Measured scan of single mutants.
Amino acid sequence: ENVVSAPMPGKVLRVLVRVGDRVRVGQGLLVLEAMKMENEIPSPRDGVVKRILVKEGEIVDTGQPKIELG
């Protein structure tokens, strides 16, 4: 899985990584606000952040790609 998608609709509060960052499985990639709760979205695997496809403040839909890992 190279693309991390939104598990639920919500607002991107914070992006916790930058392009080029090495990430580990379970590491937080971003914080999504859904139903007035903050949810940290974890990396599904070890890898390197290739692209960030969302911006802080953006509203995302379920299944929308957010971060691409290499």
Rank of each mutant, 00 (worst) to 15 (best):
E1L: 14
N2R: 10
N2S: 13
V3D: 04
V4C: 09
V4S: 04
S5C: 15
A6M: 12
A6E: 04
A6P: 04
A6I: 09
M8G: 09
M8K: 07
P9V: 07
P9Y: 10
G10E: 04
G10M: 04
K11N: 03
K11T: 10
V12N: 03
L13C: 09
L13S: 06
R14H: 09
R14F: 03
R14K: 13
V15D: 06
V15G: 02
L16A: 03
L16K: 05
V17K: 00
R18P: 04
V19P: 08
V19K: 06
V19Q: 08
V19R: 05
V19M: 06
G20C: 11
D21I: 10
D21M: 07
D21F: 08
V23M: 01
V23S: 01
R24E: 10
R24H: 12
R24N: 10
G26R: 04
G26T: 03
G26Q: 04
Q27S: 06
Q27L: 06
Q27D: 10
G28L: 14
G28V: 15
L29T: 03
L29C: 07
L29I: 08
L30M: 09
L30R: 00
L30A: 05
L30W: 02
V31Y: 04
V31H: 02
V31S: 02
L32I: 14
E33Q: 09
A34L: 10
A34G: 10
A34R: 07
A34M: 11
A34K: 03
M35S: 11
M35I: 08
M35P: 04
K36N: 15
K36S: 14
M37Y: 08
M37H: 10
M37R: 13
E38D: 08
E38C: 10
N39K: 13
E40F: 12
E40A: 08
I41A: 02
I41T: 03
I41L: 08
I41M: 05
I41G: 01
S43D: 02
S43F: 02
S43W: 02
S43E: 03
S43Q: 01
P44T: 07
P44S: 05
R45W: 13
R45Q: 10
R45G: 07
G47R: 02
V48F: 13
V48D: 04
R51S: 10
I52E: 02
I52Q: 01
I52Y: 00
I52G: 01
L53T: 04
V54F: 01
V54K: 01
V54Y: 00
K55W: 09
E56N: 07
I59W: 15
I59K: 09
I59D: 10
V60K: 01
D61T: 15
T62R: 14
T62Q: 13
T62L: 12
G63K: 07
G63V: 05
Q64F: 07
Q64G: 05
Q64S: 08
Q64T: 10
Q64E: 07
P65C: 08
P65M: 09
K66C: 15
I67D: 01
L69V: 09
L69K: 01
